[in-house]
């Protein structure tokens, strides 16, 4: 088993004002997807990222991020175990971000001989 990180990317829509029900339904979808991975014993960790942040650049330049320069942001990630990249990709196909106009980036972890 190897570990893979899935990054959830999407372009935020500032006009989208979800209702309580919308939020609850979305949480349910995400939890079902993650629960399904966890039920296979392949879940490692996950986090949703906040909508605001800072970008730190050389020369003590700090800007509001991440919207300032990029349209697309990373909304969160999950780390899973999978036998192969193919299997990880198969898992990613169930990710609710695909129904919310975003996409998933599946990345392996680089193994370093230290």
């Amino acid at each position: 088993m190897k570990e893979f990180m899935m990054l959830f990317r999407h372009v935020p829509n500032p006009n989208y004002q979800p209702t309580q029900e919308d939020i609850a339904a979305s949480i349910k979808q995400w939890q079902d997807w993650i629960g399904g991975i966890a039920a296979q014993g392949k879940f490692m960790s996950t986090n949703q990222l906040g909508y605001t942040g800072k970008v730190v650049k050389p020369g003590n330049v700090i800007t509001d991020g991440p919207y300032a320069e990029v349209k697309e942001i990373i909304g969160g990630y999950i780390i899973v175990k999978a036998a192969s990249e193919e299997e990880a990709v198969e898992m990613a196909k169930g990710c609710p971000i695909l129904n919310e106009g975003g996409h998933v980036e599946v990345r392996s972890f680089m193994e370093l001989d230290l």
Partner: peptide, 20 residues
């Protein structure tokens, strides 16, 4: 279902997976 989803993220067990 939702509680099992959380439980499995906390700690995997085959029984919890089946019950979920």
């Amino acid at each position: 279902l939702q509680l099992y989803n959380y439980l499995l993220q906390t700690e995997y067990s085959p029984i919890a997976a089946l019950n979920r």
